[in-house]
């Protein structure tokens, strides 16, 4: 057993993927961080103090974790969902009644989305109260605020997609708020967002594109910058 395991980890195929050995020595452990795309946002060594959970409460990391959950469940949901007024609601029902674990997927996506809005807000509070926005991290704070806005927008655009009463009127109320922007700008913003004067087919498609492509990609780019800066500024 052990021999087989060793043989596998020493095979060329394995080593072509994982360039470092098993993290048994400090060297290979450091290499695990250097050579791993996902871990390279971390330094090879971290201060013991920062390992304490209450140091950051893990809020930023968990927000990122929620994002991963959302992308995964969202991608699966996209397989069954068609953004059209005729079909959207029926697809929800199909998810509930026919698709294997469809309801579970939808639940995960929904609850994770709500949790993420709260989590990102809490993360922002933590950063404020620990004063972690002070120079040189001020710009990263700005990115963080923008990411918070994106999180809310992601959740909001996704809110319309089930095309039920909750969704329809939630979005109508929200876009009506936007309409109060002065100088006729509000009307234009809401028209641009909805692709019309009321929430309809166009709005559904627009929100779908925003929700599934534009906002996630933008958020991912900003997240990349955000994490990179954290790392550069000596964070965890």
């Amino acid at each position: 057993m052990r021999e087989t395991f060793r043989a596998i980890t020493r095979s060329q195929a394995w080593r072509s993927v994982f360039r470092h050995g098993l993290p048994l020595s400090n060297r290979t452990r450091a290499e695990a961080v250097f050579y791993n795309f996902f871990l390279h946002v971390h330094p090879a060594k971290v201060r013991r103090r920062s390992l304490k959970f209450t140091y950051t409460w893990g809020l930023g990391g968990l927000s990122a974790g929620l994002f991963i959950v959302l992308v995964a469940s969202g991608a699966l949901l996209m397989l069954y969902y068609r953004p059209s007024v005729q079909q959207a609601y029926g697809d929800m029902k199909d998810l509930q009644f026919v698709v294997s674990s469809g309801q579970f997927l939808r639940n995960m996506h929904r609850w994770a989305a709500h949790a993420m809005v709260a989590m990102v807000f809490l993360h922002m509070l933590r950063v404020f109260y620990t004063g972690s926005y002070r120079p040189p991290k001020e710009f990263n704070w700005v990115i963080g605020v923008v990411l918070f806005v994106f999180t809310v927008l992601l959740s909001y655009t996704g809110y319309l997609l089930p095309w039920d009463q909750l969704a329809y009127w939630g979005i109508s109320v929200g876009t009506n708020m936007a309409r109060s922007v002065p100088f006729g700008l509000g009307e234009r913003i809401s028209f641009l967002l909805l692709g019309g004067n009321i929430v309809g087919e166009n709005a559904l498609v627009r929100f779908y594109v925003l929700h599934c492509f534009v906002l996630p990609v933008a958020a991912m780019v900003l997240m990349g910058i955000h994490f990179w800066r954290v790392r550069k500024d000596g964070g965890v």
Binding site: V85, M92, S155, D164, Q165, V173, G174
Partner: peptide, 29 residues
């Protein structure tokens, strides 16, 4: 666990003719 026991809400199909009272935005708004 949350997802196993609590279903995401799904109300009646959207009906532009009937505004629920009150019409509420998502909770964060």
């Amino acid at each position: 666990l949350l997802s196993l026991f609590f279903n995401a809400p799904l109300e009646w199909i959207a009906n532009p003719e009937h505004t629920p009272n009150p019409a509420k935005a998502p909770w964060y708004f």
